[in-house]
Every structure is written in structure tokens, then in C-alpha cells.
Design a binder for these strands. Structure first.
Lengths: 225, 225
DNA sequence: TATAAACTTCAATATTCCTTTAGAATTAAA
DNA sequence: TTTAATTCTAAAGGAATATTGAAGTTTATA
């Protein structure tokens, strides 16, 4: 679950990041309009939290751009003023929720959770794919009704595969989804290989089919057809 | 579902009422201690939302009175920003949840929903989960019909786990629920570790399964599936 | 006030996870 | 078939996180 935090107050930005990461989200940050704009055009996010008053531009512009590029990210607008105007403008533009400063991080978290739930899997909390069952709230995965224990990366990988099943996904896409912009361009994909190996192993041990087909030179295809 | 709203800011009170009624609750209001006290002694409510700072008295007194008359109403305490003390006192007195001003009505709604759900354990005052039995009024816990003695924190922890069973709950969520919103972020989670350790120990000693699964890097999952 | 109980802090230890590495296996192209 | 690129695998190191027991502090209770 990848979140972009756009906020110019450094301290607040840091604590948002720390808090949300401890809640299990992966966060990236931008502290002015320009950087924010670059990021939303380079990456996909599940949720974008944007302060309206930004250096080098306006947060509402970000909302506009997200909508123009038909992003599916949930959008939460934050503003210091209690200005109804901004709120309305934001909602008109298509933001999903609105938060007024000062707010509690737990409140932000609740909003994000609500949005993410609404967006992902239509509020379903169980994903079933033949012999694979994923219980989202508990993060539990079972194969043939035998629970298996996945690490964070393995779980994210599996979820990413299932969401994109029967599509070829590049290693770049995987890297971007699991590591985001922390990834060094020059990095090899060695760690992907490792995580895929481990994921495959854990599934196969419980007698699942190996849905993960390697597409040589490109990436993978989680094939259930 | 009948709710009593106790709050002296007229505008806020009105919007609470309007909002919650649009959510399908029946609401009554009181804007000072005296009126509130009269109402709780005259009627039964499913939930009482009470601001601590009230004209003609203190909100905590209301909580006390509710408990004295053995009301079964859920209680949500609302307080201005920096009164951690009040919150804790409220929880001690037996309130179910608390909110810090300023808050969003949707948040209040969520809390009410949660409490109502929690309360309506079929109106029973006993929670049974396999070998674990909890008698809510007396706070008594037994495992395999052997009573065990839990401290306040351990009891709160166990209850929080059970209410959120089969969901991953973050350490932040635990901290917030047991210690309040304004947990310092720089705080470590050492005390959580300790209380979990002690809770686990006491349960295991009586031969219970260790339902508390650690979710590495995130938190815990009280797993009964 | 004295005492016990509960809570928090601390530090040592244990565990888990992620990444790296190097070599083996596989694949596509020459 | 040979070669080079790519992918797979297993093992190991290191970083992050979790567990534990004990010590210190606070709080409640007699």
C-alpha cells in the first residue's frame, strides 16, 4: 500500500511518514508542488495526502493533475484554514476526504484506512483464487486450507501478482511497487529473484500449482488460466 | 438506538445531532451538567457522548453517575486537547472510548458504531472464545474454567485483541487504545512488549493456545481462525 | 506511612527478515 | 552447438525487530 505525502512542514511530514510506516504503509514524500507533481507522474500511489498550501504552487492543482491522468489513488486534502471554499473545491475536483489542521495522526490513519478499504477489493476481506485464500484483515494466507507464513515482502508480492493476474508484469513494476523510489536505478533485481524463490517455495510446499510463470527477459506472469 | 449528547458549544451540539440523526440514531441533548444529570437519571440510553468541560459541573461526574446507576450505556468522552489525565480518569471510571477536540463527525460516528457493536455481544455480559471466558462486569477472566488474574493493562489488552480478533493490529493502535492519542511518537514500544509477554505467560500457564501471533514489523494478530 | 502491586524502563539475548554473493541452471540468440 | 545474458538457488551477513528477565519507578492499598 503506497502513499504519497505532500506537505511542506518538515517536522509534520517526518512524523506523518514515521507514523504511517509503523502502520504498515509504504510512504513517499514531497515538500513542494514541483516535486509532488513529478512524483505523481512517475509513480502510482494508492493514496495521496496533499496539503493545499504548498511552496511553488497549489495543492488543488495536484488533485487536478491526478484526476487528469485518471489516477485511481484516493485523495485526502489537508488545509490549515478552516475554509469551506477549499474543501468544496477539493471535493469538486474529486478528492475523497478532507482534513483540517491541526489533526491527529490517528485520525489521518483512520481516513486512509477508510479510503483504502473503499478502493481495494470493494470492501471484500477475502481473496480466493483456486487453492489460495487470502484473508486481508489478518493478512493470513492459506493454501489448500493450510496456513502459510509469509514475510512482508512475500505477502506484498503475492498480492501484487494476484491483483495483476494473467498480465505480464515487469521486474521494474515489481520493484517500483515493492520498493518505490528508494530503489537505486543501478540496482540489480537480485532481491526480487530471492523473494520470488521463497514465495514459490512456500506455496509449492503446500501443494499449490506454481502460478508464477517467468517471462524471460521481461518479468513474470501470475497465470491462472 | 438512543444517544445522549452532552456538550455546551451550541453549534457543535447541533451539528452532532443533525449528523447522527442522518445516520439513523435517535439523539437527545444536554448543554450543561445539571440537565445531563437529570436526563441520565430519567431515561436509558444506548450511548452517551459527554464533553468533560461542562458548565455547572464536570463530565467525569456524569460518567461516575452512569456507572453508579449501573447503566449499560456506552460512554464516549470528549475532551479538549491536552488533558490526558481526564481521558485516563474517564477510562478508569469506565468510559468506553474518548475523542479529542477537534474531531470529525465521521470519527464520532465510527466510535459510536464500534461501541454499539461491542456492547451488543447479544446483551450478554460474557465473552467466550474457545477456552477463554471473560465476565465483563467483574472483569474476570478464566482459561479452561481456571480463573486467572490480569492487571488492568493486561485485561485491556486482551479485550482489545478479542474485539479485533483475526485482524492485524499495529502497535500504534494498541498504544493509542491503551494509552491515548497523545502517545509520544518517539516512545518505544517496550511497555507493549512487556505487557504482551505477561499476558501470554498467564494464558499459557493455564494451557491456552497462544492466539497472539506476532506480525513482524507491524504488530499482532489475535488469530482464532 | 509502609507495603505490595502494577507499570515502565533498560539491557542482554534471540529471532526474523532483507539483501548480497557466488555459483548453477536455464534460456535466447549467434 | 556455443556463447552470453538472464534467472534460479542456497547460504551467509547484517540490520531491524521482538522477547525476556530484572531493575527501577509509580501507583494503589492497607
Amino acid at each position: 500500500m503506497k502513499i504519497l505525502l505532500i506537505e511542506d512542514e518538515k517536522e509534520l511530514l517526518d512524523s506523518m511518514k514515521t507514523y504511517l510506516e509503523s502502520e504498515g504503509y509504504r510512504c513517499e514524500t514531497a515538500n513542494d508542488y514541483q516535486k509532488a507533481s513529478e512524483k505523481i507522474h512517475s509513480y502510482d500511489y494508492d493514496c495521496v495526502v496533499v496539503d493545499i498550501t504548498l511552496p511553488k504552487g497549489n495543492g488543488l492543482q495536484i488533485v487536478k493533475e491526478l484526476k487528469e491522468k485518471r489516477s485511481e489513488a484516493g485523495i485526502i486534502i489537508v488545509s490549515a484554514k478552516n475554509s469551506l471554499d477549499d474543501k468544496l473545491k477539493g471535493l469538486e475536483l474529486g478528492s475523497d476526504d478532507y482534513l483540517t489542521k491541526p489533526y491527529h495522526l490517528s485520525e489521518l490513519n483512520a481516513r486512509i484506512k477508510a479510503i483504502v478499504r473503499r478502493k481495494s477489493f470493494d470492501g471484500k476481506n477475502e481473496l480466493i483464487l483456486n487453492e489460495i485464500k487470502i484473508h486481508l484483515p489478518s493478512r493470513g494466507v492459506s493454501v489448500n486450507d493450510c496456513p502459510i507464513t509469509l514475510t512482508t515482502k512475500e505477502y506484498q508480492l503475492l498480492l501484487f501478482f494476484i491483483v495483476n493476474k494473467n498480465k505480464v508484469i515487469t521486474k521494474n513494476a515489481i520493484a517500483e511497487h515493492l520498493w518505490g523510489d528508494d530503489m537505486d536505478q543501478s540496482d540489480s533485481f537480485d532481491f526480487i529473484y530471492t523473494h520470488i524463490k521463497n514465495l514459490r517455495k512456500k506455496m509449492l510446499e503446500q501443494g499449490a500449482t506454481d502460478y508464477i510463470k517467468t517471462v524471460y527477459g521481461i518479468g513474470y506472469n501470475f497465470n491462472t488460466l
